[in-house]
Design a protein around this nucleic acid. Sequence first.
DNA 1: TTGCGTGCAAAGGTTTTGCATGGCA
DNA 2: TGCCATGCAAAACCTTTGCACGCAA
Lengths: 150, 150
Amino acid sequence: MNSTVSYKTRQKDQILECLILNKERHITADEIMASLNQRNMKVGKATIYRYLDRLVSEGTVRKYFVEEGKSPSYQYQYVDRSETCSHHYHLKCLDCGRLIHLDCKYLGEMDSHIKEQHDFHVDHIKTVLYGQCGTCAEQKEGEGKWRNEE
Amino acid sequence: MNSTVSYKTRQKDQILECLILNKERHITADEIMASLNQRNMKVGKATIYRYLDRLVSEGTVRKYFVEEGKSPSYQYQYVDRSETCSHHYHLKCLDCGRLIHLDCKYLGEMDSHIKEQHDFHVDHIKTVLYGQCGTCAEQKEGEGKWRNEE
DNA sequence: TTGCGTGCAAAGGTTTTGCATGGCA
DNA sequence: TGCCATGCAAAACCTTTGCACGCAA
């Protein structure tokens, strides 16, 4: 299918290693560079972006757009082959930023429901359910009422 | 709660009018400016961004991040008050951009399910289910196979 | 040796910010 | 008159691109 030849290089290995080390969470291109720099692995920013692009189109890595923190940016996450992220939902807590992978039969049924009753195919890669996780909800309750933004 | 005083101005009126005219679809800050310029209404870009921010935090307008076209950007859409958006889900077609308000008992149950079983409160104002609507799916089928990313 | 990969810096795009001025109340 | 709102331009930001050199195969 994709006939592009690809060379194996130190940079690619190190970038991929970093993604795998962080497979539990999202990481920005900048964070990857910082992380590599910390361990005295110098990789140019352009290289990181270029390789990430390739990994994303290969399906090895998933790309999200996230607004947490100050400036919005893309975040990348290694796709664990054992987890079928395309079949479950993602919940993201607006307070603590935690991403929860939700594997649940009930939600699978919801998919079918939306498809059959509402004629819409949900893309689990692009969709994230935003809200508040239980832990944060408890904390907020103690503090009084809550607000949408920080 | 929010005690900030707000003045009524020509610019605000015109921006809001433009959003309401386009309430069926989403629109970028740039498109708002272009649309206003066309009708000889001069409004600075900074003003548009600033007012949009305010409208978003008020809940009058919803803000999305969309990657369609060349450069990714934020898109805005007026929230129709007559619809109780905080209680239903929103589906957004990634192809045609249409926003579908989904009032459905089944999905309400899903909320309870997520809350009770997964200890997570879904925020319907911030959450959008992305995917493909039936109409667009049909079109794509005609054109051949589809791909996840472009 | 071939041509993909890399690094640097510059370009590109949207969105934000600073500051003086304008205009609502 | 007081203070919010506006406009302009510059800044800030992330991401992409051009180009010469490096380095797998």
